[in-house]
């Protein structure tokens, strides 16, 4: 087991560097941040621009810049932002935003699994019933409607017309507006809409996956054999069938989990949620190289960890893929 994990981590090293190189080069192709910083200043001189370029080290050849970045990376230094909060350290910046992303994403994932698994099972058990048709149609809609659209509609209905939830942000600006004066409740109140939208978007494909996987498993001989042994319907469905049906769901959630930790750029932007996803969008539009690279490093490491966890979880669910 330990050997397997170590081997996996060794495999991940070249992958990690590959990703770093691609993002490093791609972001630098996208444009010149000094140009972007100074474009609104009519009095800027070419000399001042040159000084800024040298200050950020952007005058050096690309490979030189990359090695400087690597050297700093190994010292745990992700650099300082070009454009945000007066050149704040990227590590601090990500630390501030990551927690809110985790909160939102974990809530959405937890809720969607909590709903999707039982709904998918019931839908499969009653294939072609009215309930099943309703569930599959709704899930298909949920899969098809883009998240930003769903988010905007939710804001219009629940924030604008009904006024039940705030339209964006993670906290009220004035502490007087906190419900019952509680900071935590205020955050939950702000979380409600983005969580609901994200849950629905996450839920839909999982329902369809659980349903089809369950239908497949219910056709197997071992389910018939379990029934023929007189096991109760509950044990047949929730023990014998579910354990098998969950294998593809674990794959899906594992893949999703990696992407999830990167934040949901679209949802976070629509709801103005100060998470990693929105930060990434902001950094990209401002060509804030250190932040782009920092988030890339963060996402990559998180994804790799998530994949590792998925692999290990596999072994627990399916003995056929247990690693010796």
């Amino acid at each position: 087991m330990l050997r397997y994990v170590i081997r996996r981590i060794i495999y991940l090293i070249p992958l990690f560097f590959g990703i770093l190189i691609i993002v490093f080069v791609a972001s630098r192709i996208a444009g010149n941040p000094v140009q972007l910083m100074t474009v609104q200043n009519p009095h800027i001189t070419a000399e001042a621009r040159q000084r800024l370029t040298e200050y950020y080290g952007l005058d050096k050849p690309l490979y030189h810049q990359f090695f400087i970045y690597l050297a700093e990376l190994f010292q745990g230094d992700l650099g300082n932002s070009y454009a945000l909060r007066g050149g704040i350290a990227v590590t601090t910046l990500i630390g501030d935003y990551a927690w809110l992303t985790f909160e939102l994403q974990l809530a959405a994932l937890f809720l969607s699994l909590l709903i999707a698994i039982p709904v998918g099972i019931i839908s499969a058990k009653k294939q072609y019933s009215k309930l099943d048709v309703t569930v599959t149609t709704t899930s298909l809609l949920g899969t098809c409607i883009p998240v930003f659209y769903m988010g905007i509609i939710a804001i219009i209905i629940f924030a604008y017309f009904l006024g039940w939830f705030p339209a964006g942000g993670a906290h009220s600006i004035l502490p007087e507006r906190y419900p019952f004066g509680s900071y935590v409740l205020d955050e939950l109140w702000h979380m409600a809409l983005p969580t609901a939208v994200l849950t629905f978007a996450t839920l839909a494909p999982v329902v369809l996956l659980v349903r089809s996987s369950m239908l497949e498993v219910l056709r197997q001989d071992y389910i018939l054999a379990a029934r023929a042994s007189g096991l109760s319907e509950r044990s047949v469905i929730y023990k014998h069938a579910l354990r098998n049906a969950l294998i593809p769901v674990v794959t899906y959630v594992g893949l999703y989990f990696g992407a999830m930790l990167a934040g949901a750029p679209v949802t976070e932007t629509v709801f103005n949620w100060p998470g990693v996803g929105r930060l990434f969008v902001e950094a990209t539009t401002k060509l804030d190289f250190p932040v782009i690279m920092g988030i890339t490093v963060f996402i990559t490491i998180m994804t790799l960890i998530a994949n590792l966890i998925t692999d290990i979880a596999y072994g627990y669910i399916d003995p056929r893929i247990r690693f010796e």
């Binding site: 197997q220 001989d221 023929a228 042994s229 098998n244």
Partner: peptide
């Protein structure tokens, strides 16, 4: 019927490869 299945009347399936649950 659940009390009869497996206790009074038992069933052996054709393909042993698929009649045992792979995950238990």
């Amino acid at each position: 019927m659940e009390k009869i299945r497996g206790k009074e009347i038992a069933y052996i399936f054709q393909d042993p490869a698929t009649s045992l649950n792979p995950v238990f």
